[in-house]
Amino acid sequence: MKQFKNQNLARKENISVEFFYHNAKERFNLKLLSDQVGFDRLIIEQNLHRPGLALAGFVELFSFSRVQVFGNTEMKYLQKLSSKQRAEVLTRLFDFEIPCIIITDKNKPFPEILNLANEKKIPVFGSHYPTTKLIYLVGDFLDDQFAPRMSVHGSFVDVYGVGMLFMGKSGVGKSEVALDLVERGHRLVADDVVILTKKGEGILLGSGTDMIKHFMEVRGIGIIDVRSMFGIRAIRFQKRLEVVIELEIWDDGQEYTRTGLEDSSVDVCGIDIPHVKLPIIPGKNITVISEVIALNYLLKHYGYDPAKVLQKRLLNKIDRNSQNMDRVIDYFEHDFE
């Protein structure tokens, strides 16, 4: 299969606890329980960890570099201990370089936790969410932060709800196609610099950059702002990537798809994305063809593949060994209009 040139795949190495708290406090209702200490600590993993076994004394293989979540189980266990024992087990835990601790489900922190937090400079947060919900939410947030990203050169447009990425050499007319699609009522996601983020397995989300947003350059005009020119209906901020369209100048030596029976796809960050190679020739309206590709993608998605339907019909006819080529219908024989 064709490999996408993903030479510029990047992934965040870490995020600081300060960045995490700043972005997460409202989303997950996080409250700072300790003093504002250790905000420069770094979170380097998207996974969270419940330190039950570590509290009970088993610290081999303790994933201390993860955000630690104290749920009801952990708090109940700590409650059963005497104050002295509690300080002891917590000290063992706080001796590790933990990025931060989150106490869930409105549990009140023990004074021993807060003292150690301030002493060892490990921030402790509280949330009223139940543990499973918090782990799901924070995990999703960290997943997004640590997701592999790449920037590609192309135009990304939502055509009838299908995320289409136009690629091709500089000056081949990607921006013009995007502009034409916007004019016809489709929505621009980004032009020139498209950031693709790998979300979960099998999903790539495309968006623009925070600085450029929906500005674009059109050769011969210069820079235009699609949002102020065409309004809010002409843009969107992100869209799942569903089809890659490669524009290229017509090349006699190349073979182009004729039936569409074989699906061609391209590997982007390990995800298969349907791929169409479109040759540009005079008199060919790339915009209309793009709309057709989008509609055909939707049809296939909803279970109707025209190439397969026609193939089946052909095989049927061959089977019946019928010689004559019939007209499509013959009800209107006496209708000469």
């Binding site: 030479q7 500089s170 610099v193 820079i223």
Partner: peptide, 22 residues
Amino acid sequence: FFIIKDGLSINGKSIIGVMTLA
């Protein structure tokens, strides 16, 4: 032509791309 800054690579033949680098 590509310009690479902080792991982000952009096409150096695109004005919007080059401006993205800020």
